[in-house]
Nucleic acid binder design. Structure first.
Lengths: 329, 329
DNA sequence: TTGTAAGCGTTATCAC
DNA sequence: GTGATAACGCTTACAA
């Protein structure tokens, strides 16, 4: 028995009356004489031997661990993404080392250091820090954020999503549209939601406005904007696209407080595809991100980088529209 | 440089012109001559040395990793719990190894094996399998589930929560109460919600009924029950306590479909304290679990088992009531 | 104080 | 095909 009390291959070797090397071969499925194999397997069974992955990893430089950097799990998008990625990793024999950064740039940087110390086989990161220093020695895949030309970024097709939202609103009879966004001001994939929206409005000759709110002053600033655009208790926009479902829900609250209701007075579409966890009902009409596919793709590109072809630097997965009661469909 | 390319203490020692042991002492904060320390620290800085935790753990039998067994992160209760536990672990210098079991007993068992192989320093587990075989060699703390007398179980005060729900409904004018539960039939802490509810009803001489639904047939069975207890489109109960918020939301849907509305026709209270992630509004009136405290306690008991006093076998944390529009307060 | 060397549990490279 | 043996990078007696 070892210092920890758990049996080691040494114990197994003694129990089976063979050498260390033979035990190792059996464990790793290398060719070994039939009776030897049986004796070893029986010894393993008898002793309840379990491989010590730390010793193995020290030797092989392969940990079967992937680090997952997430800002928080309090928001369902991150939680579901983490769920899917972890499940996907486990299916492939990997473990996931979860790190929560709370949107703190310092914490994000510190996590990248931890990842190196812990010799993870790779990192899947959803970060916000503007200037992350990342070591190129360990494979990285990001979600929704460009870290550099050598780091693949997985996202939903934000641009197409923005276009689809505008398209839907128009086809549902809207004439004057508004785009509202909140969130950190780092340049990221999700910015394309507004860009796609705007492109479609412009191309179709639709009247529209773009409103960008800073996190700190979001509710107040939005309310001021709202009041400035209400005449005789009538909102001058009849279609609103919000860059997240969360924002859409808050916008709907503020509208309701002013006697303006969706979908009668104004139609509202969010982005993410969040649904209530039990009823599975969406909180609003929304553009659905293919979270499971994003997870699968992230893991895939991280673990099986295409041999011949260069890894994609940006992979956009198809979105879809889901009516949720805040539009007239 | 080592095989992996990353510098090792050997490289640092050479660079600093000192011995391995000295470097190790500096890294671990052991007493070392002032100029030696400086030289080592400079070398570390220059080389960008990072300790290899795998080598260290192999030697010290301490991994600074805690395994987290969760059924899923798609449900916000588990997600938030995971968030809080992970944050708490990181604050104490631990990493969390996340394992998702999807409520599958086989997966749960397999995860416990993985935990041993990965030499985690401990396990925090929220499981459902009826007969888990757990190795006593590694410290375990469970959430909401009793695994045996030697395994501490953290939970909210489910019994008091059930009582509080009944109490609230009565004080809000209800005369005939109903308790509804769904969920797996393993014996667990959450069962006490119904028990507490029932005890208060009985002690106060209140009329009440208890309804337990199996997961598979939940919606249909509940609707049948509902229809059997509606006379002239009037429900014979005026207060309902559901064992989760998720169930409460579904129950409210079924009631609404029959023209019965909360809180006018019937008052409904759920359990968990789930709120919408953006608006922070509860989905229904509810008994709030102190998730952050539960996380903190779980980590605390796992990592710092009380020296003298025996570890508690069951720790119930105080709940509170939160009105959410489905009751008349 | 500092350096040396043994050993943690594996895998991998050799001779046999 | 099998069994010694040398690493992997680190900590820790112990010797100097």
């Amino acid at each position: 028995m070892s210092s920890t009390g758990a049996p080691t291959i040494k114990d197994v070797a003694r129990e089976a009356g063979v050498s260390l090397g033979t035990v190792s071969k059996v464990i790793n499925g290398k060719p070994v004489g039939e009776d030897y194999r049986r004796r070893v397997e029986e010894a393993i069974e008898r002793l309840g031997y379990q491989v010590n992955t730390y010793a193995r990893s020290l030797k092989t430089n392969k940990t079967n661990c992937v680090a997952l950097l997430m800002p928080s799990l309090q928001h369902p998008f991150y939680a579901i993404l983490t769920d899917e990625i972890t499940a996907c990793l486990m299916r492939r024999g990997y473990r996931s080392l979860l790190m929560i950064t709370n949107f703190d740039p310092k914490a994000e940087q510190k996590c990248f250091d931890l990842v190196q110390q812990n010799k993870a086989d790779g990192v899947i990161a959803l970060t916000y820090a503007a200037d992350l220093e990342v070591d190129a020695s360990i494979p990285i895949v990001t979600i929704d954020r460009h870290l550099g030309p050598s780091v693949p970024c997985i996202s939903s097709d934000n641009y197409a999503g923005g276009q689809l939202a505008a398209e839907k609103l128009l086809s549902l009879g809207c004439r004057k549209l508004l785009f509202v966004r909140v969130g950190p001001d780092v340049h990221g994939e999700p910015d394309k939601r507004g860009a796609g929206f705007e492109s479609l409005c412009r191309d179709s000759g639709t009247e529209y406005a773009m409103l960008s709110l800073r996190d700190e002053e979001a509710p107040e600033a939005f309310c001021r904007y709202l009041d400035a655009h209400i005449q005789n208790s009538k909102l001058e926009f009849d279609g609103i696209f919000c860059n997240t479902d969360g924002l859409a829900v808050q916008v709907l609250d503020h509208l309701r407080a002013r006697g303006i209701h969706a979908p009668e007075d104004v139609q509202v579409i969010g982005y993410d595809g969040m649904v209530h966890y039990a009823s599975r009902r969406p909180f609003c009409s929304t553009i659905v991100q293919p979270i499971a596919d994003m997870a699968e793709s992230a893991v895939d590109i991280l673990l099986n980088p295409p041999e011949d072809a260069p890894r994609p630097t940006n992979l956009c997965l198809p979105i879809r529209y889901l009516p949720g009661g805040t539009t007239k469909d």
